[in-house]
Nucleic acid binder design. Sequence first.
DNA 1: CCAGAAATTGGGAGCGCTCCCAATTATTAC
DNA 2: GTAATAATTGGGAGCGCTCCCAATTTCTGG
Lengths: 345, 345
Amino acid sequence: MSSFADPNLTLEEIARLSGVSRSTVSRVINQQPNVSDDVRQRVQAVIEDTGYQPNLAAQTLVSKRSWMIGLVLPRSVSSFFTDPYFPRLLQGIAQGCNQHDYTLGLFLVGTKEDEEKVLPRVSRKGMLDGVLIQSGQIGDQLIDRLVNLDLPVVVVGSPLHSDEVSFIDVDNISGAYNAVSHLIRLGYQRIGTITGLPGGAATSDRLEGYEKALIARGRNLDQSLIVEGDFTEAGGYYAMQQLLPAKPDAVFAASDLMAIGGMRAVREAGLKIPQDVAFVGFDDVSVARYANPQLTTIRQPIAQFGTNAVEILIDLIENGIKPARRIIMETELIIRDSCGASRRN
Amino acid sequence: MSSFADPNLTLEEIARLSGVSRSTVSRVINQQPNVSDDVRQRVQAVIEDTGYQPNLAAQTLVSKRSWMIGLVLPRSVSSFFTDPYFPRLLQGIAQGCNQHDYTLGLFLVGTKEDEEKVLPRVSRKGMLDGVLIQSGQIGDQLIDRLVNLDLPVVVVGSPLHSDEVSFIDVDNISGAYNAVSHLIRLGYQRIGTITGLPGGAATSDRLEGYEKALIARGRNLDQSLIVEGDFTEAGGYYAMQQLLPAKPDAVFAASDLMAIGGMRAVREAGLKIPQDVAFVGFDDVSVARYANPQLTTIRQPIAQFGTNAVEILIDLIENGIKPARRIIMETELIIRDSCGASRRN
DNA sequence: CCAGAAATTGGGAGCGCTCCCAATTATTAC
DNA sequence: GTAATAATTGGGAGCGCTCCCAATTTCTGG
């Protein structure tokens, strides 16, 4: 394979060089049948040592396929820049794209103006074969606007409105339920929670899991033990400061970052973790393992989640859009030190 | 603007609907002169309420422009998934793309096999107008391979080999120099450093700045005070454990994350920050402000850096490729608590 | 060895756009 | 009013590919 490919190589040119027709070269490239072995090899040799690659735009124009999918991160996903969750997710998505030979287009919506610039680009014909959109906040109409395009769409996380749309999500309710059940099992009496950013599906599901776990054990819900966070470290810190007067002996934080922020507030208040306040987080991002003490948490298979999302979308693209696909992935309780699991020994 | 655009709208169709020719509609869309005002308005009205958008693939095919740029993150940039630096950078890049109406293609190279899948995709004709590539490690041949494509390329960070290539970087040498000078000024005697991952330009530049600052004040370099990290929290932690026996009274870490890891090791050793060991980091990512104590650091304008990189690339794309552009951005010393700046008062 | 079927090959049409140039219309000067 | 020029407008060609169908070649069986 020569490393300097003629930039102006075309199908026609390859055909000429290998002494066959355009059509035959096309068949070889697209691995279609009805090409004799010797011709196929001759053509392949020419392709190899010219370094020819078909022009994507031309292929897209006629086939109506771009082999590119978009990932849209709505404005309301403000924690993109602080939460290690997103790089991991991106990794999974990128890997899924690589595996299936799709290209990933990234559409970060920062401001309202961005939205007006990004949407037309996403919906542009000849641009994308499908779209992955990160589930955002209630009131964010981006998902609806995307779903109204005639493009395959998969929502990453639960969609908030429509139920005709395909999505993939983690079982947030059972994850939170397991986290809190674990704390109950360890004998904690006043279990508080720091919620995610209000208005998101993950936030309300994790809160629901928290409540269900308490109710299942006959505990009463105490509103003073429930305080709003925003998925960030700083948010967890402030939330914990609000929570401390309610004297929780354990806290379920709806993200690891908030758990770490919460632990910081607890330490600053002169209390010990887990002796005075135990913690369980959610996500199992890598900082959970380096926290002090190491954080007990609910692991979600983030990268796998991204890869699966891509696969669902590609399935939708290649095999039609009905019925909507719905995937829920399970979580896993990872017991480390912050929950005080060992103090009972 | 009707929200349900006919998906099969074409230039020809718009022409028919507005009673003019294909060419005239094309002129209106591309804002070319030589269209009478009333015709222009009539056509624009039709475009508006059909929601017509030109087919990208068709435009790309004839104009040889895709209005899409790629961001390539080489395999050797392993800290992508842990360092908050990258999301910020991505934000800046995405914003630059939005502003200039370009689409961003993301090419994460995870494995060697990824590289073989990604490169052909990047070089595919009709795909990208230009490429941004994150500077990686020595021995990573990805940059060279990309530069050999006939595509405009801008390296984000200093390129390691070629000097024909355009790049944008932050002044790592002077940043590190200022960090260490600050520590010297505060009277520290045994100033250690935790370097980045060996083999990267940022790593060697920051080390060079460290050494220059010491030499400028007539200090001797003590190899036992220089220890290798890898830009991660865990790397900083282990590096600090190696560094502690050399009894440093201050440490310059080549990233905030490593500074935070280093501080964790110091605390675990029963020492106080900054009384026993002072710290200065590099980057000023948001966790620096939430660290305990708050981290003195060298701020680099990460998002702006990304936006600038996009602008240089677009300049290259639209105004030709010679001569190579070279931009160096300045850093800023942000004094917080971890350097003990106030203990001399 | 030849008709008929099967496999292989080639070329035209067309995807939706931009560019060029020719045709038409409007404007100006005399 | 007419010739000259300038401003508009329209249509053909072509970007590089895939798809379809017709033409050619190869392979059967009797």
